[in-house]
């Protein structure tokens, strides 16, 4: 038991091996799984590598033990190890969810794709460790610039992406500009003697309202804007212009004038009328 050669058993404290035979499911269940039958060494090694995760003792509650391992693995599979941001897999999953929501609700959702300018130069000049520090500092900065409901992800290399649900068209450029400015103001200490500054180019595209898009189409549109930002000299924000008609405040005012200035009691009366007739129909 537990002698699988593919496992890096030496990384795992020996004490845990003794508890391999705790059943995960109840003993009356014919499909009972015994911890001892599972090859958990790799998983445990991965999780114990992360100082923030604490595995409970398997003997206390085998179920809790397994659950913690599974949760930990899920968490690991969704995060970028260097920056702690969502990885691309997680991001695509969230993006798909937004696409479904937008298609039905017409909510305004913005996708930003961001790329650190001349990042290769940082790596070439200061080394890869400095590059990693820059990626970490920029990640932190990006997360600080958005709301908790927004998701920032490391898309790959020095490219990041953010989904901003419920982001009205007029706020999009403001948020993106804030991010661009915040990144440009970062002072990143890469060695006791060296502090470097970087800039970021940002492209953005809103989800098409009421239309079911795809991850590819949506990211392609944001990418096009990123390309424009790069071509225009970097350290810039370009957001795809939304087509559609704005309904002006004056038009809205006139459209709803009757609601605001009409008989204030009529709104309530209408409301209760619906309820009454619904009640009558229902019973």
């Amino acid at each position: 038991m537990g002698k699988d050669t593919s496992c890096r058993a030496r990384d795992v404290p020996a004490v845990i091996h003794r508890h391999y035979s705790y059943p995960v499911a109840s003993a009356t269940d014919s499909s009972v799984i015994r911890l001892g039958d599972l090859r958990l060494d790799d998983a445990r090694a991965l999780l114990e590598h992360d100082p923030s995760s604490v595995l409970p003792a398997p003997e206390a509650s085998p179920v809790e033990y397994m659950q913690t391992i599974l949760d930990g693995l899920c968490e690991l599979s969704l995060r970028d190890p260097l920056t702690g941001l969502s990885n691309r897999r997680h991001f695509n999953h969230l993006l798909n969810r937004e696409i479904e929501a937008v298609a039905r609700s017409g909510e305004s959702v913005l996708l930003l794709i961001m790329d650190i300018d001349h990042f290769k130069k940082v790596n070439d000049t200061y080394g890869h460790h400095a590059g990693d520090l820059v990626l970490q500092a920029v990640s932190k900065c990006l997360e600080a610039c958005v709301r908790p409901m927004d998701t920032v992800s490391r898309f790959g290399g020095e490219e990041f992406a953010a989904i901003l649900p419920n982001c009205p068209a007029t706020f999009g450029p403001v948020v993106a500009e804030r991010i661009r400015e915040a990144v440009s103001e970062l002072s990143i200490v890469v060695s006791p003697t060296e502090t470097i500054h970087v800039t970021i180019s940002i492209g953005g595209a809103f989800a098409p309202e009421w239309v079911r898009s795809t991850i590819e189409l949506w990211t392609e549109r944001a990418d096009e804007q990123l390309y424009r930002a790069k071509s225009a000299g970097r350290n810039r924000v370009f957001i795809e212009e939304q087509h559609g008609v704005a309904v002006s405040a004056d038009e809205k005012g006139m459209l709803f004038g009757h609601l605001l200035f009409g008989d204030p009691a009529s709104g309530d009366a209408a409301g209760s009328a619906v309820t009454d007739s619904e009640m009558n129909r229902a019973y």
């Binding site: 098409p208 898009s213 189409l217 949506w218 392609e220 549109r221 795809e240 939304q242 087509h243």
Partner: peptide, 8 residues
Amino acid sequence: MSEVSNPP
């Protein structure tokens, strides 16, 4: 090009 064209 994209899901939404420029209608004009």
